[in-house]
Amino acid sequence: MTYDDPNWQRPQPGGEPGPAGTGEAVPQTGYSGPPPTQPPPAGWRPPTYLQPPPPRQLAPQDIDKIEAQEKDARTLTYGVGLVAAAVMVVLSCLLCSRVLF
Rank of each mutant, 00 (worst) to 15 (best):
T48D: 12
D72V: 08
A25M: 12
V99Y: 14
R74V: 10
S97R: 15
A84S: 14
T48Y: 09
T75H: 11
G79Q: 15
Y49N: 11
L58C: 07
T2I: 11
L94M: 07
L100N: 13
G30I: 04
T22Q: 06
L58W: 08
A20G: 07
T77W: 14
G33T: 00
A59H: 06
W8A: 13
L82E: 13
W44K: 05
E67R: 04
L94W: 00
M1A: 08
R45H: 09
P36M: 15
T29A: 14
Y49R: 13
R45K: 09
K71F: 05
P60G: 03
D5W: 10
P40Q: 13
Q51P: 04
L95H: 05
P47D: 08
K71L: 05
P46N: 06
Q61C: 09
G21F: 01
L76Q: 14
T75E: 15
V99I: 11
P6H: 05
P11V: 02
P17F: 04
V90H: 03
I66F: 05
L100G: 06
N7D: 10
P11Y: 01
Y31I: 04
M1R: 11
Q12C: 04
N7V: 09
D4H: 12
I63S: 02
D72N: 10
P35D: 10
L95I: 10
P11T: 00
W8L: 12
S92E: 03
P36E: 15
P39W: 07
P13M: 00
R56K: 13
G14A: 06
L76W: 12
P52Q: 02
A59S: 14
F101Q: 14
A86P: 01
T37G: 13
P35E: 15
Q51K: 14
